[in-house]
């Protein structure tokens, strides 16, 4: 998947007193690489407290209208700021209960997470917790899922584009988008199901039980196999490629199918 297309320029509000640290810099860099626009809260002054972060974060929430918030739990060295992030979280949820918030914290599990879940949130809040030691890729992936479902257009490697809204698949040939007319109906639905699973999680398999509705006749697996072969042939023809058994759409040990993003 083309990484720049993932974020689509969406703003991410970053509220963390360690925003200048190497660890945060690697996360910010990853956000930018994936096409997000991080808005970093950085109060100025000699004695910056958790309250300063809170004030600026809530102001930026109104003015910047971010797609999500990346929020630390512990701010500064003052005892009063030990769990300031939980109080900021509560205020964010009170103002906008649908705002996705990813708590980026040392306290991703355990009693403080439970406290936050039980006391600070309401049912509709879209809040998740991730450990400070998580890789930047994991942080961005989690943010992406918090923000929402698969976008209307999903890139499949740099060779194809699935436009779910207009029910169309395009081949990308040298920057040109060519509609692949023969992929329609069930073939399009199979590709959509596989592409959505792959967008949600690279390792997600679509088991046969979820694909059986696309098959016919007594031997549903054989029928499905035929449809998937036809689908791969159609996709391959559009980019002058021949996708083998271990490319693009693969049968994983008779458990189901998985989409693998093709190389350029």
């Amino acid at each position: 998947m083309s990484s720049k297309s993932i974020g689509g320029g969406q703003k991410i509000l970053v509220v963390d007193d360690e925003h200048m640290s190497d660890l945060m810099r690697s996360v910010l860099r990853r956000l930018e690489t994936d096409g997000f626009r991080p808005i970093v809260i950085a109060p100025q002054g000699q004695h910056v407290s958790g309250d300063d972060y809170e004030t600026q974060a809530l102001f930026a929430l109104e003015t910047e209208r971010p797609a999500a918030v990346l929020l630390d739990v512990r701010f500064g060295e003052y005892d009063t700021d030990r769990f300031k992030g939980l109080s900021i979280l509560k205020k964010i949820v009170d103002r906008d209960s649908k705002m996705p918030v990813l708590m980026f914290t040392q306290y991703a599990q355990g009693p403080y997470r439970d406290t936050a879940v039980n006391a600070s949130l309401n049912v509709s809040a879209s809040v998740d917790f991730i450990d400070k030691l998580a890789s930047p890729e994991e942080v961005v992936l989690r943010l992406r899922r918090l923000i929402g479902k698969a976008p209307a257009t999903i890139k499949i490697g740099s060779l194809f584009e699935l436009d779910a809204e207009n029910a169309a698949v395009y081949a990308i040939n040298g920057g040109r988008r060519d509609l692949i007319r023969e992929i329609q109906g069930m073939k399009l639905e199979i590709l959509s199901e596989l592409a959505a699973a792959s967008y949600r999680s690279e390792g997600e398999l679509v088991p046969f039980s979820r694909l059986e509705r696309f098959s016919e006749g007594e031997d549903s697996r054989a029928s499905l196999r035929v449809r998937i072969r036809e689908l791969k042939v159609s996709l391959g023809r559009a980019v002058s490629r021949d996708f083998g058994a271990t490319e693009l759409i693969i049968n994983v040990r008779n458990r189901g199918y998985r989409l693998v993003h093709p190389d350029d």
Partner: peptide, 16 residues
């Protein structure tokens, strides 16, 4: 938390 601090620094430096 305190154990995590040096580890976060090492990890951050490695990523940089």
């Amino acid at each position: 938390h305190d154990m995590g601090r040096p580890l976060r620094r090492i990890l951050g430096k490695q990523r940089e």
